[in-house]
Amino acid sequence: MQKHVRKLLTVVTEASLERSLVEDLRELGAKGWTITDARGQGHRGKRSLDWEHGGNIRLEVICDAALADRLAAHLREHYYDNYAMVLFVLDVEVLRPEKF
């Protein structure tokens, strides 16, 4: 079976950003994404789910390298200064390249 390499961009950030992140993803042309609730601890303090807007989300997008770069640059420019945000990119293999 042929496999194709794509990028998996993962963002862990504040739940209150969900709506505006989804808008950004749409505008920049992502075809799909997955968001899950998350909790943990980092240098901006502990984040737990027990509070409606205090929680974190984990956003995952599989896309080509160019879009992953654009998304990463956009997020860094708009959110890094004022929000708790961690972002990383991995290589992943997918079976249906046209989907991503």
Partner: peptide
Amino acid sequence: YIAAPATLRVAVPEANPA
């Protein structure tokens, strides 16, 4: 402690929500 924090976190990101 619900409506204001949620809206201001988005509208005034420079403010420390804590």
